[in-house]
C-alpha cells in the first residue's frame, strides 16, 4: 500500500514510515516541555512574577503571627524580635522584600493595560495611569512609615 502510494506520487523515497497510510493524514504533535518557563527569558520573568504570590502569602501569615505574638505580651514579642534579628531570617526577609518589590513594580507596570479610564471623551493616557500608581505607592509608603514611626 505504502509502496503503491509512493510510486503513484512518483517520488524516490529513501526512508519510509511504515505506519503511514496513504490519504490518512498523520499530524505531528510536539509535547510542550514541563519547564517551558526556562525556554524564554520573558517566560522566566513571568514565572518569577507569579511566584511573588508566595512572598505576599508569607508576609500576610507572618503579620498574623506578629499580631498573635503581640497579644501574648512583651516577653513573647522580645523573643520574636530575636527571631527577626537572626542572620538567616534577615537574609530570608531580604529575599521576601525583593519579591514584594518585584510584585509592586510588575503590578503597577501592567495596570494601564487593564485600566482604561475615560473622562468624557478624553482617554486618560497610559503614562498618567502609570505615574498615578507610582504616586499612590509613594503616598502609601509614607503613610505606613508615618503611622508606625511617628
Amino acid at each position: 500500500m505504502v509502496q503503491v502510494g509512493v510510486a503513484a506520487v512518483g517520488q524516490t523515497v529513501n526512508r519510509i514510515n511504515p505506519k503511514y497510510q496513504l490519504y490518512h493524514p498523520k499530524w505531528y504533535r510536539k509535547d510542550y516541555p514541563i519547564f517551558w518557563w526556562l525556554e524564554k527569558f520573558a517566560y522566566g520573568k513571568f514565572i518569577v512574577r507569579e511566584m511573588t504570590s508566595l512572598a505576599v502569602g508569607y508576609t500576610a501569615v507572618l503579620l498574623m503571627f506578629q499580631l498573635w505574638v503581640l497579644s501574648r505580651g512583651q516577653e513573647t514579642y522580645q523573643r520574636f524580635l530575636g527571631f527577626l534579628e537572626s542572620t538567616p531570617v534577615m537574609i530570608f526577609h531580604g529575599v521576601v522584600l525583593a519579591f514584594l518589590l518585584f510584585h509592586s513594580v510588575t503590578w503597577f507596570n501592567l495596570a494601564p493595560k487593564a485600566l482604561v479610564l475615560r473622562l468624557g471623551r478624553w482617554r486618560v493616557p497610559n503614562a498618567l495611569v502609570l505615574s498615578g500608581h507610582y504616586a499612590a505607592w509613594l503616598a502609601a509608603t509614607a503613610l505606613v512609615i508615618w503611622l508606625v514611626a511617628r
Partner: peptide, 26 residues
C-alpha cells in the same frame, strides 16, 4: 489567561491582545 503578555510582544500589527483580555476581565 494569566497575562504572560507574550501575545502582545509578538503581534506584528500591535493589536495588544493581552491588553484586550485584561480589559475584558474588568
Amino acid at each position: 489567561c494569566t497575562f504572560v503578555g507574550e501575545c502582545s510582544a509578538v503581534c506584528p500589527k500591535h493589536v495588544d491582545p493581552a491588553g484586550a483580555i485584561q480589559r475584558y476581565k474588568v
